[in-house]
């Protein structure tokens, strides 16, 4: 029996060189599912509040937005939409670039994508968290009365 018994090879038996960022694709895949579910709630909530409730879409003006962004709840809500949706979209673009672009073109496109995403995230977050409706000359604006009272 001993000469026909199978040789036991200790793990790891899989000898291909380990690749960088192992598990990145798994996390990206999970992120797409999780953010997708959250975004369904967040975006439909956003559309419902802005477009349908109250006087509907005609309610949207500078004062309406300023009013929403005075409430920390909506700042967090909008920030979540911004970050989740932008990264969701950027990751989708990344997979498309990985599918169809090779070599230097891929590197350029991925780099441009990263820069665009970071710039948009920073600018968007800056607006959401530092928004002040009273910046600039508001003496004739819709919020003149409110800002003047401060």
């Amino acid at each position: 029996m001993s000469d026909t018994a199978t040789t036991t090879v200790e793990p790891p038996r899989y000898s291909r060189a380990p690749r960088k960022a192992r598990g990145l694709e798994k996390r990206a895949w999970l992120y797409m599912r999780a953010s997708g579910i959250l975004l369904v709630v967040l975006i439909f909530g956003h559309l419902l509040i802005n477009m349908f409730l109250g006087t509907g879409v005609r309610a949207i003006d500078f004062a309406f937005v300023a009013g929403k962004l005075a409430n920390p709840f909506w700042i967090v809500w909008d920030s979540l939409i911004l970050w989740l949706a932008l990264i969701h979209g950027a990751n989708g673009m990344r997979t498309i670039v990985n599918d169809y672009a090779r070599g230097a073109l891929r590197a350029v496109l991925l780099g441009a994508l990263l820069v665009a995403t970071v710039v948009l995230l920073v600018l968007g977050s800056l607006v959401l968290w530092t928004f002040d409706p009273c910046i600039g000359d508001t003496s004739s604006g819709v919020l003149a009365e409110l800002c003047g009272a401060q």
Binding site: R13, Y14, A21, G23, E25, K26, A28, T95
Partner: peptide, 18 residues
């Protein structure tokens, strides 16, 4: 008994996530 090895292989960038 090789499931863990095969799952590692298919967790690759070119594995099931594509």
């Amino acid at each position: 008994e090789g499931a863990a090895v095969r799952l590692d292989i298919l967790n690759d960038k070119e594995g099931v996530w594509r």
